[in-house]
Computed example of a mutant assay.
Amino acid sequence: MTCGPEVEWRDLGGMAGDALSNLLRTVRLTGATFFEIEGHDPWAVCSPAPSSILPKILPGADHLISYHVVTAGRCFARIVGAEAIPLEAGEVVVFTKSDPHIMSSHPDLRADPPTADVLDIATAGRMPFYINCAGGSSTSVRLVCGYLACDALPFNPLLEALPPAIKAGDAKGDGGWLGQFIKLAVSEVAEKRAGSETVLTKLSELMFVDVLRRYVASLPPQQTGWLAGLRDAHLSKALALIHDRPANNWTVEALAKEAALSRTVLAERFTKIVGMPPMHYLARWRMQIASELLSTGTGNLANIAAEIGYESEAAFSRAFKKMIGVPPSAWRLGVRATSGSGNDAASDTGEEKR
């Protein structure tokens, strides 16, 4: 799978964005199929299941994110069984887990699951991809839609922190990045210039980051989770250090000093907001890096162990199997644990001393 653009996001709505940039590179966020929809009332379409999409567009990925940007008109989006979300031109909805969902001209319209032909047309990139246009009614909505993919296993704290659906944008006219994305996307779709497919997929990755920024900025003060940690000046520093220098011999004391907090305050605040102690987070992040190196590279285990802070291949292998549930050699061959992650490996990275 190709990696996302090498872009550093230094400012996340006034917060340090290094941990987010590092995570998006490590979990290999990448744009995928991008297409245009023109809807004529009444219309409704159900999204394909992720299991049917990934093998066609990004067979190496294990998590799918779908999005729909309204470029003209209005419509509704809803996860099956949930309340409909109204959308107008200039707004986007991102389904972070690609749950089965319906896009429609009215909130109560139902849609049949898509056929293989529909999916083949969509993924073939024959644009625009029209829906229910045979009725001859005037166009009620135009959408640019697409998918992003990334690694979810063994540890992607961003995905764990996101709600199933995020709505962003400004129906009255957006002068920010999202508004620019819509203009550029419409232009690329219409003009079909050389390289448009690459431009559109990279634009979708940048659009997703902007949606994340907006979501973080909208979080209430009492919110907890990984993204809330990015908004905390002290915790964002600690997270950035862990992501930037995972092989460092970190202790809670060392992180606290760098984050300008006492050891006790950092440990308590990190655990309360991020959801786990700092050393547990470090252990899990090290294994995420290791899993990516095992999946995409040919380096030997000793080199990978050294790269994430283990003094020996044996210690790394024990920690990896304990946390992930399979040994590194099995992960490299594509074997995944059948019963979820293994036990916490924090004891192998320097257990917190309280």
Rank of each mutant, 00 (worst) to 15 (best):
L235H: 06
G175R: 08
S347L: 02
A346V: 12
I242C: 11
A267N: 12
S137Y: 01
A247C: 04
L301D: 04
S104H: 05
A314T: 08
G60I: 15
S312Q: 07
G39V: 12
I57W: 00
G4Y: 08
A84I: 03
L109M: 14
R318C: 09
W250C: 01
K353T: 07
I121K: 06
L153P: 03
A165N: 00
S339N: 13
Q222L: 08
L206A: 15
M103H: 15
P164K: 15
A19N: 03
L178S: 10
R10L: 07
L293F: 09
A194V: 13
G350I: 04
S52A: 05
P86K: 11
T139Q: 05
A185M: 01
V69E: 11
L266M: 04
P277R: 13
I131T: 09
E351V: 13
D112H: 14
K237E: 10
S312E: 03
E292V: 11
P86A: 09
A111T: 11
H106S: 10
S52G: 09
E191I: 13
C150A: 08
N132A: 10
L24Y: 04
I65P: 00
T198A: 06
L239E: 07
A165E: 08
P55G: 04
K183F: 07
I242F: 10
F320M: 09
T251R: 10
L87W: 03
A259W: 01
E188V: 11
G81H: 04
E191P: 11
A260R: 12
T224V: 05
A337Y: 02
L227W: 01
A171G: 00
A171K: 04
K257R: 15
I289V: 13
G146I: 13
K172Y: 07
A267F: 12
E91H: 06
S52T: 06
S312K: 07
P328S: 09
S196D: 14
Q288I: 06
E351T: 00
F34N: 00
S66M: 06
A315S: 09
L178T: 05
P163M: 02
Q180V: 11
K183W: 00
D18F: 03
P48C: 13
G173C: 01
P278T: 01
E292L: 13
L29T: 05
V265N: 12
G340F: 12
P246N: 10
N156R: 00
A319W: 02
I324A: 01
W177A: 09
V216L: 03
T271S: 15
T251H: 01
G173I: 02
L159F: 05
R245A: 01
M103I: 15
L203R: 10
T251C: 09
A19K: 04
A111L: 09
A185P: 02
L301P: 01
L294K: 06
K167R: 09
L203M: 13
S137C: 02
S105T: 12
E8T: 14
C133K: 12
G179R: 02
P100W: 04
A314H: 06
G90C: 07
A111Q: 13
T33Q: 02
T349I: 14
R78C: 08
P164E: 04
E253H: 11
M1V: 15
A238V: 02
S21T: 09
